[in-house]
Amino acid sequence: MLVREVMTAPVVTVPAEQTVKQAVHVLYERDITAAPVLDDEDRMVGIVSEMDLLRGEFEADPRAYARPAAEPESAPPATVAEVMTPNVRTVRENDDVLDLVDLMMTTGVKSVPVMSGSELAGIVSRRDLMGILAHGDERIRDDVVAALRDLSAETMTTRVAVHDGIVELSGDTDERAARIADVIARTVPGVVRVVHPR
């Protein structure tokens, strides 16, 4: 599966000079956990997450302490540019989702911008990936059958069964048709693995 098949587009972005409070409203109202940050020429210069925006936004409540809470040492950040992560890890539209998952797991990032050349094309969050995995077996089977029918006349007689996202391909097909069916089935969102029972 390719990144472009799971990414969210168009992308919700925020300007670098937007206030932290404005950015909080954008993320909260759009129900997203992060947004790419753009400069005044619409170039991506960073990414800002919910955690970035929470930094410095709350003061200690004196009711929680036996003594008065200490005054903050400095004013909280005012703009997105002050709290964003500037060095952004990105992926390309035609990258394999497996590489994207590996990037998320090794770096701990929850949202990754998707680039098309030098342009921002989309974004993929962990939630997007979970949504693909949440596809039911019946939907996955229907999608695999439709893809086999639409993309190759050689795979028309292939039988498809799906259990927990694992696709079983069988039927009276020759080896070449079986290979074609295998490749096509692996491109369908929600497919975890493809097997050929004997």
Rank of each mutant, 00 (worst) to 15 (best):
A66I: 14
L148C: 05
D95V: 04
L38F: 04
R127K: 03
I132S: 08
T85L: 06
D61I: 09
V160S: 04
T13Y: 01
A181L: 04
R176M: 06
S152Q: 03
R186D: 06
E154F: 02
V183S: 12
A9R: 15
A185Q: 07
V20H: 08
R198W: 06
V11G: 07
A78E: 15
M51C: 07
A121F: 03
E93Q: 15
E175R: 14
D39I: 02
R179K: 06
R43I: 00
M1K: 08
V3W: 04
A81R: 13
V6A: 13
R30I: 00
G108E: 03
V101C: 11
M51S: 15
R92W: 05
R63S: 15
V124A: 02
H196S: 04
P15N: 14
A34W: 06
R30M: 01
E41K: 15
H25F: 10
L103D: 08
E154K: 14
A177F: 04
R176G: 05
E41C: 02
V20N: 13
L120N: 05
V195A: 13
R149Y: 06
I166L: 11
G56L: 10
A75K: 13
N87P: 00
H196L: 03
A121Q: 01
V83Y: 12
M104W: 03
I123H: 03
G165Q: 12
M51T: 12
Y65C: 08
S49K: 02
M105V: 13
S125W: 01
P77H: 11
V48N: 10
V109K: 00
M51D: 15
V101T: 15
M84V: 07
D182V: 00
G46C: 08
R63P: 00
